[in-house]
Amino acid sequence: MPRAAEISVNEREFILQGLKENIRLDGRPFDAFRSLELNFGDEHGVADVQLGKTRVIARVSAEVTAPFVDRKFDGIFNISTEFSPMASPAFEIGRPTEAENILSRILEKAIRRSGALDTESLCIIAGLKCFSLRADLHVLDHDGGLIDASCIAVIAALQHFRRPDVAVEGENATIFSIREREPIPLSILHHPICVTFSYYNAGGIMLVDANLAEEQVREGEVVITMNRHGEVCQIAKYGGVSVDALALLNCTSVALEKVKDITKFIQRRLEEDAKKRDVGGLIAELSAENAR
């Protein structure tokens, strides 16, 4: 398999020269995201995120399994990423690239380990039955900013997902299908969002949401994950360039603004989607959710 054509010398020099003159290739300001688009599928728990040309779909599904023996009171939550060759010929199935490893590691840190999802609420009967939640991430088109887009997709899909209702009587658990009882939303404790900063010119220039060409030229990147309350979940730095501590503080304040905007955007889209699904009338009154 021939390798990807690396970015040419001309392009590299042009992009760097442009950045020195405060011009980005697509005319955005340095601290602007590309246009963000979020759609939900017909099913609950499917989120389709488009960040510029980058496109990611996240799908959350649940099944009932036995919990891990050392964590009897917790449900199971996994995130699996898959880079389809459709997104870029650089991706091969079964042979994860470095970018894929970094992406899954950062999502692991940002969403799973920051405790965004209350896994205890997924427990049905301690030590016997729990929900195993799985978020599958499919990258459909790759034009940079994969980490940011993936994180938005997973968080939006988790917020959109509804798990089946259960009733426990002693040792027996009954799981109700969607027709029998209204499924219930997950209990999400906070909504972490990733913002990637790219560094150029020995750390002198900082960009938010670099596209693929800009990513190929960058000297270093800093990924900051935080929620809209300003609580930093993780900071990861890759690449050789050194970043000033004060610059890092500046990053967090820029990230906070972005995270607030994105969280608000996801919320708005979720409300629009809920309105679309709301049947209203007698059916709505009969829903099991009202009884609780």
Binding site: R3, A4, A5, E6, S8, P89
Partner: peptide, 18 residues
């Protein structure tokens, strides 16, 4: 785009992954 130089010629790519 020139990718490398072999003994008598440059090898170039016209489109990625070809």
């Amino acid at each position: 785009t020139v990718t490398n130089s072999v003994s008598e010629a440059y090898s170039c790519t016209l489109t990625p992954y070809t």
